[in-house]
Amino acid sequence: MKKTNFLSEYGALVALVVLFVYNAMRHHGTFLQVENLRNLVSQNASVGVIALGMTLVIIAGGIDLSVGSLTALCGAVCILVVNKFGAGMSPTMAILLASVSAIVIGALAGLINGAIVAYGRVAAFVVTLGGLAGFRSIALVLGNGGEIRSQVPALGDFGFGGVAIPFAKDASGGPVLFYWSAVAFIVIALLMSFLLNKTRFGRYIIAVGANQRAAEYSAINTQTVRLAVFTLLGALVGVASVMVGARMNSVGTGSVGLYYELDAIAAVVIGGTSLRGGKGRIWGTVVGVLLLTLISNMITAENIDTNWQGLVRGVVILVAVLIQRGKKENE
């Protein structure tokens, strides 16, 4: 048995630690502030939640390109619902109702994607490409091509609310909050990790992705499994859309969610999950999301033209994939 190449297994984690240490030493006055560390987790929490769901879909052998557009659609639903009920009931109830609506719509959309993929036997790439266009279009119709503004200020407060981090103070002496979106990201990561690694359903996902024929012969209902992962991803997109809608207290139906699918897939790939399916890990995706946020943070701190960001990301993705290729050949 060849020894697993350490770098190919933990490459992303190593990169994260190295860059973290680099930034800490270079900008220690600002980088290590609790606020900044909190930002590293919270700024991409919405994409992160989507990436977690995307991990499972990719492990199961599928892919979902419609998540960005679906974020806009669910976000639009969320704001519309909160506006409709915000006057009649307490803001908390309205926000709860809006969140549930967004998640339900997301799950429904995921269900449709999954059904066409599993039972209609159309390639996931094609189905979700249709979703990419279709969901955005519905969102634009709901928003009349523009943004939908929330009339419930409590939603915006919720977007910047969270758990106070003990022993931390920001520049003006106030508490530093660990935003609810960041909390959700971590909680969902733990849940998905448990789902994948410790439940039978998780093993089915891996089996379906690794070898669909063999999974069928093992009496696994591959259609149900695939339907389920797409639905789950849809629901997580709903969660992400609430995070985004709360942070902005509005949803720009044309601009929200743009390129989220690429960011999510990038995080999954960087984290070590293979696009071929059959193997992958949740913690890898978390590392991928944090790495992408860190790179973004660095580009601001070093005052580099933001236009370079795309190239940097592309290179990081390529390097990540090449390193993993080494892993495949060793086995």
Binding site: T30, E35, N36, N39, Q43, M248, G252, S296
Partner: peptide, 16 residues
């Protein structure tokens, strides 16, 4: 886009 601008503003705050 707005999400990026919000992150920019947050980062500027931590930069003092």
């Amino acid at each position: 886009e707005p999400n990026e601008q919000i992150s920019d503003l947050e980062n500027m705050k931590t930069q003092g």
